[in-house]
């Protein structure tokens, strides 16, 4: 963590291109002049008047200080303080550079049908050498190995966060960075993350992008657990298979109704305490559908894992650590992941 008097981006970094923009500033692909290393530079404006250091920045930096050593969490290399052209204080977060994210990756698959780029085939063969024994194999076989690999990496990264008492609270394809060449997946954007191990008054329910938001959060629970992240993992799993969001609601109510239509309207039998939650009302009554109707191309083991990730009762939802041990991942050579 470096505190320099003045750090203009010109001095330390050569900005190559803008790759994104968030609430508090821009993200650039940049080259570190001293080393020639390509990095992602997240420039955070400090609102001089009222807020100071945004809590998202404060949390992200401190949490990544702790989690960055895991291969499935994006690496924060440095934090520098400097000034912009107007003389206002700016923080630069220097991250390792990843060339895509899961959202873009899914979109590219959706556009190209089901063709698999040759470099992915190479990676898949290294992860699952047993494929060599199969004389004729189909695209879906490749896709299932690719899917298992990404899901295993995601569960591993989430398990690492949870093992250190950190809830991510904003898991979605856009926040999962990828290296196209190696198919390595890394969890990023921990601005909404928080430690869940020290008691506090209450959590906000203004977290998490709607489509990946757990039902307990939608129903107004003020204390929630690791299970909120596992719900998001389940939604991402389904989206990886179908290339479509599983529950694409455009309001909190619509989001709940999407969930209820597929999984059935919850009640005290399937989810004790649900009717006591703040936002609980009398909802239309739907019976649960088979998950295979929503994710038809997922095999039986995959459907079993998905169903455990999408359990209504948070305490019954599978943990990331347990998910890694699920038989769905038995074919993977986990040494490479």
């Amino acid at each position: 963590m470096e505190k320099t008097g003045v750090l203009s981006a010109k001095e330390a970094f050569e900005k190559l291109e803008k790759v994104g923009e968030g609430t508090y500033g821009k993200v650039y692909r940049a080259r570190e002049k001293a080393t020639g290393k390509i990095v992602a530079l997240k420039k955070t404006r400090l609102h001089e008047d009222e807020e100071g250091v945004p809590p998202t920045t404060l949390r992200e930096v401190s949490i990544l200080r702790m989690l960055s050593r895991d291969p499935h969490v994006v690496r924060l290399m440095d934090v520098k303080q400097g000034q912009n052209k107007e003389g206002k204080t700016v923080l630069y977060l220097v991250f390792e550079y990843m060339d895509t994210d899961l959202k873009k990756f899914i979109r590219s698959f959706r556009q190209s049908g089901e063709t698999i780029p040759p470099h992915i085939i190479k990676v898949i063969l290294s992860i699952c050498p047993s494929i060599f024994n199969i004389r004729f194999f189909f695209v879906h076989l490749f896709l299932s190995i690719w899917l298992q690999s990404l899901m295993y990496q995601l569960c591993k990264g989430v398990a690492f966060c949870h093992g250190h008492g950190i809830l991510h609270r904003d898991l979605k394809p856009h926040n999962l960075l990828m290296d196209r060449k190696t198919m390595m997946l890394k969890i990023a954007d921990l601005g909404l993350a928080r430690a869940f191990t020290v008691p506090i008054k209450k959590y906000t329910h203004e977290i998490l992008t709607l489509w990946y938001r757990a039902p307990e959060v939608l129903l107004g629970a003020t204390h929630y657990s690791m299970a909120v992240d596992m719900w998001s993992v389940g939604c991402i799993f389904a989206e990886l298979v179908t290339k479509q969001a599983l529950f694409p609601g455009d309001s909190e109510l619509q989001q709940l109704l999407h969930i209820f239509r597929l999984l059935g309207t919850p009640n005290e039998d399937v989810w004790p305490g649900v009717s006591k939650l703040m936002n609980w009302h009398e909802y239309p009554q739907w019976n649960p559908q088979s998950l295979s109707t929503a994710v038809p191309s997922l095999d039986e083991l995959g459907l079993d894992l998905l169903s455990q990730m999408l359990k209504y009762e948070p305490s019954k939802r599978i943990s990331a650590k347990k998910a890694m041990e699920h038989v769905y991942f038995d074919d993977l050579d986990k040494r490479h992941l």
């Binding site: 963590m1 400090l46 404060l58 949390r59 200080r65 250190h164 430690a195």
Partner: peptide, 19 residues
């Protein structure tokens, strides 16, 4: 705002507290 930034760098952003 100045105090906050100096305090954070002084702590090395080491803000998490385990149980």
């Amino acid at each position: 705002n100045f105090l906050e930034v100096d305090f954070l760098f002084g702590l090395g952003f080491h803000l998490n507290v385990t149980p």
